[in-house]
Amino acid sequence: MNIFRLAGDMTHLLSIVVLLLKIRTTKSCAGISLKTQELYVIVFITRYLDLFTRYVSFYNTAMKLVFIGTSVAIVWYMRLHKVVKQTYSRDEDTFKHYLLIPPCFILALLIPLEFTVTEILWSFSIYLEAVAILPQLLLLQRSSNIDNLTGSYVFLLGAYRALYIVNWVYRFFTETHKIRWIPWISGLVQTALYADFFYYYIKSWKNHEKLRLPA
């Protein structure tokens, strides 16, 4: 565990805290994509099946349980909470997210590290995570009014991926040059998807303006 990995994980955790804070205090999930949140539930459950087969550390196990639990809780709020669900931006959250699942699964069948169920599902979850933010980014483009908590949530989520890249560079030089193609390439793709958002987020922050993404 290095400082960049820890910073990445903490940023990821903070993004979820910010999202839950928005939902619980404002009783609103406006601007949040249910499609993206559902994809995260699939990502975490398929990736962390190794909870039963592989023990890395107490830290890893605890974080995995937190990520599964919070992602399920967020989807529960958005789908079933009687007040929160009414604030869902249903008409603007139109990305056909289920179409992302088959290509990621086929890719996982073609390029897993080993041809075992847990390795294939693990690779699938890495590929799916890379594109899971797309419905959320599309929803932000369509939103005329992006509130601060929603903007912060997406920014923290992107920052987590960027920090993981720094972590990989650091690990490459400190841990006898091990290669992790699957997470590296997927992570680069995932971070690149945020480039446009980062640009407008930082610009609005510097100019003290409200965040708006051009369509």
């Binding site: 592989r54 974080m63 972590n167 040059h177 992790r180």
Partner: peptide, 10 residues
């Protein structure tokens, strides 16, 4: 150079 999985990360 050795190719490994990334199971130790989250």
């Amino acid at each position: 150079l050795k190719v490994v999985s990334g199971h130790d990360e989250l």
